[in-house]
């Protein structure tokens, strides 16, 4: 509960700081031109020759009728420069009539963030669902891997070890790349149509290797006496594992598995290699098309919110499972 409050406070502070910062920056000379704007200049007060204006305003288009010059700006960053030069050429008494108000009044940081929110939330959903689905699928797979690693059977043990060796030992980025682009080259039947599905498979396979190690370590950390007492009572190995060892190992797995969730949440940003729009990719896209770093603030806040959801769920789980201690 306290953690959630801290996160919310952090998000609010970030938003406040960001709106103050841009408040001081906003104004006529700000580079953020969001839409084409039309400006009318009235030169009746004093003389500004059209030709000099033309020379200064590199990309605007002009129409003149009497003393009024109308300039239409296409949507690009350079136009503020042109406008600034027009302003420099004005004399007292000249009028500027802004027909498109949005050009002058910069949207506030909050308005910008709100306008990005749908795209960011959509991308967060990809990030979050990919994380949760692949970690959950990996949990199932990893129980078998962990038991395989602990098995006395030579083949099972070595297969599990080889699996973990491979998926921990190669970059996740390459695994994602390989599953989406590489598999179809081996055989067309191995083609995975959906990028999301490809990412899900790659993450599941990769995470399982890490979680298998977590589970193995947790199982091995349980006192040997537990297995002996189970055997002495006549339980089979499988029963002892299921009824005695694994229930105790659960609790010890929770902190590292929570950690795994948080790591995976951030690792999902690697899906950009197969063109999937997760939160990081979306953020970078907004950043480059709007030429602003402001977007990182809501993006980081969204990551923090997701992380804190994981941590609070796992903390509660851990508390519940600790009741016998």
């Amino acid at each position: 509960m306290r953690k959630a409050a801290v996160v919310i406070a952090a998000v609010l502070i970030m938003l406040a700081v960001s709106s103050c910062a841009s408040g001081s920056l906003s104004g006529l000379y700000e580079e953020d031109v969001l839409r084409p704007a039309r400006v009318k200049l009235d030169f009746s007060g004093d003389s500004v020759t059209l030709t000099s204006l033309k020379g200064d305003l590199l990309t605007g288009t002009f129409t003149a009728s009497g003393d009024v010059v109308e300039i239409t700006f296409p949507p690009a960053e350079a136009h503020a420069l042109g406008l600034r030069q027009v302003m420099n050429g004005l004399r007292s008494g000249d009028k500027i009539i802004f027909e498109d108000y949005t050009f002058l009044r910069m949207p506030s940081a909050l308005e910008k963030i709100i306008s990005w929110m749908p795209a960011l939330l959509n991308a967060s959903w990809i990030t979050l669902s990919l994380t949760v689905l692949s970690v959950c699928a990996a949990l199932i797979l990893s129980v078998f891997l962990a038991l395989g690693k602990l098995s006395k059977n030579f083949i099972t043990r070595n297969l599990s070890n080889a699996y973990v060796f491979f998926f921990r030992g190669t970059p996740l980025l390459m695994q994602i790349f390989f599953i989406y682009y590489g598999l179809p080259l081996i055989h067309s039947a191995l083609t995975i149509q959906s990028r999301y599905m490809a990412a899900f498979i790659a993450f599941t396979l990769n995470i399982a290797a890490y979680v298998a190690e977590i589970i193995r370590a947790a199982i091995q950390s349980i006192d040997k006496g537990q297995m002996e007492a189970s055997k002495a009572l006549g339980l089979s190995y499988a029963q002892a594992m299921r009824l005695v060892i694994i229930p105790q190992a659960y609790r010890r797995m929770i902190p590292p598995i929570c950690n795994e969730f948080v790591m995976v949440l951030k690792d999902t940003s690697l899906v950009f290699v197969i063109g999937l729009m997760d939160l990081t990719s979306q953020t970078r896209k907004i950043q480059s098309s709007n030429n602003t770093t402001l977007v990182f603030i809501p993006a980081m806040a969204l990551y923090l919110v997701m992380t804190s959801v994981f941590t609070s769920v796992f903390n509660r789980l851990e508390e519940r499972l600790s009741r016998y201690e």
Binding site: D223, G225, Q226, E228, A229, A232, G234, V244, P247, Q248, Y324, E325
Partner: peptide
């Protein structure tokens, strides 16, 4: 199963 065993360190199931 005809043998029951009691250990020095109890080895009870803590959960």
């Amino acid at each position: 199963l005809k043998m029951g065993m009691v250990f020095q360190r109890f080895n009870l199931f803590p959960h």
